[in-house]
Design a protein around this nucleic acid. Sequence first.
DNA 1: GATGAATGAGGATTCATTCAT
DNA 2: AATGAATGAATCCTCATTCAT
Lengths: 188, 188, 188, 188
Amino acid sequence: MPRSKSDDKRSAIINAATRAIVTQGLSAPTAGIAKEAGVANGSLFTYFETKSALFNAVYLELKTEMATAASHGFREGDELREQFFRVWQNWMNWALSFPEKRRALAQLDVSDEITPATRAAAHGAMTQVTALLEQVRAIGSLQRAPMNFVLTLMNAVAEATMNLIAQEPTNAKRHSRVGFDALWRMMT
Amino acid sequence: MPRSKSDDKRSAIINAATRAIVTQGLSAPTAGIAKEAGVANGSLFTYFETKSALFNAVYLELKTEMATAASHGFREGDELREQFFRVWQNWMNWALSFPEKRRALAQLDVSDEITPATRAAAHGAMTQVTALLEQVRAIGSLQRAPMNFVLTLMNAVAEATMNLIAQEPTNAKRHSRVGFDALWRMMT
Amino acid sequence: MPRSKSDDKRSAIINAATRAIVTQGLSAPTAGIAKEAGVANGSLFTYFETKSALFNAVYLELKTEMATAASHGFREGDELREQFFRVWQNWMNWALSFPEKRRALAQLDVSDEITPATRAAAHGAMTQVTALLEQVRAIGSLQRAPMNFVLTLMNAVAEATMNLIAQEPTNAKRHSRVGFDALWRMMT
Amino acid sequence: MPRSKSDDKRSAIINAATRAIVTQGLSAPTAGIAKEAGVANGSLFTYFETKSALFNAVYLELKTEMATAASHGFREGDELREQFFRVWQNWMNWALSFPEKRRALAQLDVSDEITPATRAAAHGAMTQVTALLEQVRAIGSLQRAPMNFVLTLMNAVAEATMNLIAQEPTNAKRHSRVGFDALWRMMT
DNA sequence: GATGAATGAGGATTCATTCAT
DNA sequence: AATGAATGAATCCTCATTCAT
């Protein structure tokens, strides 16, 4: 699936948009994003039809990256809690390593800019994580709660934990643990 | 003695803004809000210096109203879980009764339009709730976690639960219970 | 000729307008002028039909005051140059004593806010000065130049001299003399 | 290689602004200026950052043009009065040929829209004229007066003369002479 | 008459998007 | 494809003036 145009430029624009979202919010002018990406403002629109399309692409990109990071080092055989914790740790690590990406993602998530289609696609990238979560749910107290609800809770606890870590990176490990334990308690 | 600034008009503007935020987001034009409120667009600015000031006022108003609703029927003597659950139920009821207010509040909460001062003031209105949460925390597993973190978690679970309820109001009661139990498990 | 309403308020508004013009130019909001004058913004319009009317009134008032000041101590018998110089000195003194009034007057003079009628009325207040100027002109090199032209020149030299004095009040007397001599040379 | 900013458009805007200033004053809407110039209202701002910047550019342009016109046909060897008179005539001619430019310039000059920097730059364009004036001053009665004062006087006499000419263009030549003689008398 | 809230037209500027080069 | 000028709708806010009290 060769993508015409330049992948580099596409990436540059997405990265610039990520930074812009963090510093200026979703109202960041496309002109600024283009400049930051080192391309002409008009060029931005050869890569993304509209500003909204760009933001959806950013969302998908970041979410996918995050999911990939989270699934890293996944081992089939391990015990469920073990596996889940590993995912959790990967997740927190990613958030710690790329604070801007995380914040941009959070902003996009609550915006109404992201279409259902994009959300679905992003959900697809999370399969691995979702599957795991599904297993956890199946054995715990939230068996009868809708998966969506559980997913939201997990996201919320993760988000809160990330904030904690971002505020006090020194105790990243401990905070991560606290968040995980809370989540686990809630689910089991 | 001229017309004095009318509370009715102020309220009308705040209500109109609330609705506008829900349907159009924070970029809703002030002109539309004014029209919806039945006042001239210029009048909006005699009640609120800027659009931002209006949004802060909306936030404060809604948060205060929510907190008041949550604290309703508070009884000193009751057992902690009982008290906390009552607050929770009040909260969920309010969200069910005023879905628009709830959604507007959520949108404002994640926006960067709300100043720290406003957030502080809003926090002040939540004293009753916060105090209760503090007691719960003190006896549970999150004793050593920062209050802010716990507060965020509570908000998140509440928010998720409200969404669930909003989607399926028929089972409001059950959903409310599920959410509360999850929260309680997490905290204790 | 009893003027109804309060003369005090009228004066207060005119004074406030004078100050406002100096600090903010002719675009100074009427609301600010009213506040500065200690009256309600609506009241301004019971004293002056429109903002433009107010400015015309200010102009007339200031010009009249200036003319009165200039004519002070006029003595019929004196030699022409003597008389003219006395007027000139009075004029410069007034400018030195009321720098704000002078500057407001200058601003109004070049604006197109002042109607011909007002200018005519103001001209009327200058009779004494004009008459004197007329005599000077009659005997000098500008005999055949239109009176209006001569009047403009006199104003211009006066204005320039006032600026000089305003910049360096210490040498007010000398500057005044320099200006007068230049004017006299030009006219004779 | 996209369209590059066109000098024509820039000029068109400046010309339109010049006309607008004459007919409507400095409060002339930018939209009108743009339309008159045959560009979209937004385009005005790709050529000039702000309305104020536009006015400063107009001022600089007109003043420079005027200075250039005045210096035309300058001959080193001629007698001082001769040289000065030639400049004066050029100046009056320019004013007669471009009455709108002259009036716009006069309006801008008295406004507080023009920054000191712009005034300095404009002054730079007048070097030739200023130098001549300096020489005249050096030999006359205003030797000890500050150059600025003398410059103001010259401008004032010129302005008054231009008005006279504008009112009665038939006698342009005679009026020009009258004005010059008056100025010369004042300075020598 | 006095007050100050109410009005709504007006205006500078921004910005997503298009298009000539 | 790349560029950046061109476009013009959209928007917040101001302010002279009116009017209910």
